[in-house]
């Protein structure tokens, strides 16, 4: 049982790793690449804490095999800010106090960023349905939804 060699790009950096055939992208990000921003809440695609973008598409990294990242680009929460500058979504989550424990936050950020790239002017209902795959047990979602709507408005204005 030999390992698979994968060349990929993570948050803009070229990265190579060896992984087992059955290893998930989430496990490799966390355990081999050292990016622990994506979280495992369930390992079965039900919570969204492990959300990353794969070639720009929102995926649960716990359901993607690490080998599938070959030749693709992976974006994780660690790559959202630019240097010292937070992304509008990050700033808005902070401004709206949209996190309590913060374990869901990486997934919420990746998912809502993917939404706003597709749909810069979502309705509240659209935001709620888009984020329905991202469980948050702390906030009741209220402040998260407000933060994403506010970020969308600001990004449209900018």
């Amino acid at each position: 049982m030999s390992k698979i060699h994968v060349s990929t790009s993570i948050n803009g950096d070229a990265v190579e790793y060896l992984c087992e055939p059955e290893e998930t992208l989430l496990d490799v990000l966390r355990n081999r690449v050292g990016l622990t921003g994506a979280k495992e809440g369930c390992g079965s695609g039900d919570c969204g804490a492990c959300s990353v973008a794969l070639d720009g598409r929102l995926v649960c990294s716990c359901l993607v095999l690490a080998a599938e990242a070959e030749g693709k680009t992976v974006s994780t929460v660690e790559g959202i800010a630019e240097g010292e500058n937070l992304h509008v979504l990050q700033q808005k989550l902070l401004d709206h106090a949209a996190l309590q424990c913060g374990i869901c936050t990486p997934g919420i950020l990746i998912a809502s960023k993917a939404l706003l790239e597709k749909n810069p002017d979502p309705t509240e209902t659209e935001v709620r349905y888009w984020l329905a795959g991202n469980l948050c047990r702390c906030t009741g979602y209220d402040k998260i939804i407000r933060a994403v709507m506010d970020a969308a408005a600001e990004m449209r204005g900018a």
Partner: peptide
Amino acid sequence: TRPPRPDGVDKVTGRALFGAD
């Protein structure tokens, strides 16, 4: 008042270390 929380930036950038990290 409603100032930003001190651990906020760590938690929106993925730097915050949780149990499994």
